[in-house]
């Protein structure tokens, strides 16, 4: 939370986002059949997934830290990270459907990565339903933390093991999670990795703002109760 309010962090985020848009649109990309110019969608679609996984990992880390010290701050952080993770997951699904519609022919192709990603989003939507259905604050935090850890463990085989057991239209299935087909082009990596960092950092920034908002709200309610 401290990190996201540092000036350098914000400057870096903004700079990387700008770089992603400029370089992503203007740099040369390999000429590949079917993909054509739409290969540039890689810079904006795939970072949604990478960002989602990294941000959900942060969320589960804060849930574990909550259970080891019962500091409510960790619970609020875990919640907000999970919310941003859901947002990124939904954006990843929508952008993926749009892209698939023009390259694979249909928006929903039954591709294992697509289905498993949709289920991962469902798992985390269930997390927010759970939070909504418990009234008491401390109990809510504790139960939600338990479910968060459980849900993350259930999501790992979903995202990292199951898609590799079946053939996928995504590049790099059958062993490597990376993108073998594009690996030849180091120029694309020069844009792709900064883009992942940029969108993850943006997610952390948003989550930290909402954490502060939630905190202010909590203490406001406490004041009113007194």
């Amino acid at each position: 939370m401290k990190l996201a309010s540092q000036t350098w962090f914000r400057a870096l985020t903004i700079a990387l986002l700008l770089y992603t848009v400029l370089a992503g649109m203007l740099f040369d990309v390999p000429r590949l059949p079917i993909l054509n110019e739409s290969i540039r969608a890689l810079y904006f679609h795939v970072p949604m997934w990478f960002g989602m996984v990294i941000i959900l990992l942060l969320s589960v880390i804060h849930s574990i830290r909550y259970l080891s010290g019962f500091d409510i701050k960790n619970d609020v952080l875990a919640t907000q990270y999970a919310n941003v993770g859901i947002l990124y997951g939904v954006l990843g699904l929508l952008t993926g459907m749009l892209w698939a519609n023009y390259t694979w022919g249909t928006p929903w192709h039954g591709d294992p990565k697509q289905t498993t990603a949709a289920i991962a989003v469902l798992i985390y939507l269930a997390y927010s339903v759970l939070r909504g259905s418990i009234e008491d604050g401390d109990r809510k935090a504790r139960i939600a933390a338990v479910y968060n850890i459980f849900a993350f463990a259930a999501m790992i085989p979903l995202l990292f093991i199951l898609p590799r057991l079946t053939s996928s239209m995504h590049p790099g299935s059958g062993g490597n999670p990376g993108f073998n087909a594009y690996d030849l082009d180091s120029k694309m990596r020069m844009v792709f990795y900064p883009s992942v960092i940029a969108f993850t950092a943006l997610g952390i920034w948003i989550a930290s703002l909402y954490t502060r908002l939630q905190f202010a709200r909590n203490s406001f309610e406490e004041n009113n109760q007194q």
Binding site: T116, I119, L122, I123, L125, A126, V129, L130, S133, I134, E135, R139, I143, V146, Y147, F150, A151, A154, P157, L158, L162
Partner: peptide
Amino acid sequence: ISAKSSRSPFLIAVLGFPTIIPMIML
């Protein structure tokens, strides 16, 4: 988990179905 909340019969389905899907796929 769901027994600790107020709407548990509803919640066991909400929490259980998405998390159990990986197992079902296998």
